[in-house]
């Protein structure tokens, strides 16, 4: 009895291991945080981009308006790609764009906006990167669609044309 059961268990175990390895081959091994969760927006107080006054998050986000919070930097190449979509989004006028300037210097960042246009209603600067951590971000660019003080949708990496259409659909 024992001698027959053991091989069977052995073979079964290895079959299961095989199937699991096989399945995991297909899934990506790069971890991205769960983006679907609806979360309350974190509060922050950061320096304004233009001058050194402190901007408190409670004063920016009002209840019944849509906000698009975008983390960007002039040294970040994908930010340049997504910039035209931000300008497009701004044209619609139904949404306020908040820029969070990540570890940038003022001169480069202003040149960047001068060249490509400034889509942002308000820009805060995050010199040491701690502000973006409060938002659960870990790279540039990253964006958050905010409504009623909640993050409705999160975009890791540059937004695409599809993302833009989706946002426009939501805010209609």
């Amino acid at each position: 009895m024992k001698s027959k059961l053991l091989p069977l268990i052995l073979v079964l175990t290895f079959l299961i291991i095989f199937v699991i390895f096989f399945k995991s081959l297909k899934s990506s091994n790069i971890y991205t945080p769960n983006t679907t969760l609806e979360k309350k927006i974190p509060s922050f107080d950061l320096k304004s981009f233009e001058n050194n006054s402190i901007i408190i998050s409670e004063k920016i986000f009002k209840d019944n308006e849509y906000y698009f919070m975008n983390i960007w930097a002039s040294w970040c190449i994908p930010c340049k790609e997504e910039h035209k979509f931000l300008m497009e989004l701004k044209k619609g006028g139904k949404i306020k764009l908040i820029g969070l300037n990540y570890k940038d210097n003022f001169k480069n960042a202003s040149n960047f906006l001068k060249d490509l246009g400034n889509p942002y209603n308000i820009i805060v600067s995050d010199n040491d990167g701690t502000g973006s951590i409060e938002w659960g971000a870990y790279g540039v660019p990253e964006s958050f669609l905010v409504y009623q003080n909640k993050i409705i949708k999160r975009f890791i990496g540059p937004i695409s044309n599809e993302d833009l259409l989706e946002i426009q659909k939501i805010i209609k």
């Binding site: 091989p7 052995l10 073979v11 290895f14 095989f18 390895f21 096989f22 081959l25």
Partner: peptide, 12 residues
């Protein structure tokens, strides 16, 4: 993966 498990099953 297939190679590895062939060897494992062969040895079992």
């Amino acid at each position: 993966l297939i190679f590895l498990f062939t060897l494992i099953f062969l040895s079992i």
